[in-house]
Design a protein around this nucleic acid. Sequence first.
DNA 1: TATTAAATAGGATTAAATCCTATTTAGGTG
DNA 2: CACCTAAATAGGATTTAATCCTATTTAATA
Lengths: 157, 157
Amino acid sequence: MDLFFEKCRENKLKITPQRVAIYKALTASVSHPSAEQIHKEVKKLFPNLSLDTVNRTLVTFAGAHMIDVVEGHGDSRRFDPNREAHHHFYCVSCRKIFDFQADSFQADPLDSLVLPREMEEKFLITGKRICLTGYCDQCRSKMAGKKLTLVAVKHRI
Amino acid sequence: MDLFFEKCRENKLKITPQRVAIYKALTASVSHPSAEQIHKEVKKLFPNLSLDTVNRTLVTFAGAHMIDVVEGHGDSRRFDPNREAHHHFYCVSCRKIFDFQADSFQADPLDSLVLPREMEEKFLITGKRICLTGYCDQCRSKMAGKKLTLVAVKHRI
DNA sequence: TATTAAATAGGATTAAATCCTATTTAGGTG
DNA sequence: CACCTAAATAGGATTTAATCCTATTTAATA
């Protein structure tokens, strides 16, 4: 919980009972829950907690780097026809996906990826990719100086 | 287009004008479009092409490994409280996310990732992860022997 | 060319995310 | 410690994406 309080203060996020409960519920989770799952859980303590609050709170936490938003990011399904081995950078602000390859003088790091044996044996792996997240150049400058707040349009910058 | 015909035959997918057009539109795309974007494009040729057809076709193509479904996978947003460096395996069938670390005797391949200079300079990178996709052990056995078809519940196995 | 399983269209439904507005509250300030 | 205000919340409405359902059409094969 130390991280929670520290990051809240750092980002001037108010510490509310709901937020504490949401954060606790997430850290206690074994899987990688959706907002709805967290909502269901925390409703036991706060019967009239709204789903919107959960979603916005979690996205805000992610913005403060207390947690991560993982696949999916909550937006629509996207497709990629490129069959060459390549990697992705996903801009969490504009949601554009940028392709990249590791620096050309280096070998692709995935070539040297050795998976845990159990996984290699049990799972059927059909795709491997490095996924970076962050802010693209455009969004980076747009957000310069803006402070983190829940009053966000579409949870974006 | 060779891959298209080859993979269609291989998977016993009928080659329809709509499918050809959808595939072409995707390969012609520069970004990583959503079904809706492709729909909008292909509608120019087939004014009464339905969005459902586009979505199902694209997901089917992905099942046949002609294209990839990338972030997001089309399901709800998921959260992860784990701050330790780790990687993900995403089961495209049950949508569970499994954490893993590279084999413990190896260094994490991301440690040696050298990004293109332009990217390193311009983008603000806040997260790095290896993302594997495929079928987890349970789903793998469930789907054994099932053939690929568009008649799928929730586009799953 | 006849057959049939597979694919499509189009509208209905579901589900997730977000919006909107009134109300409440955390945290700073006098 | 009470007040003040910006920030957060609740709850319902709306929007958007994905999927479902069913009647119709069609690609592939024999």
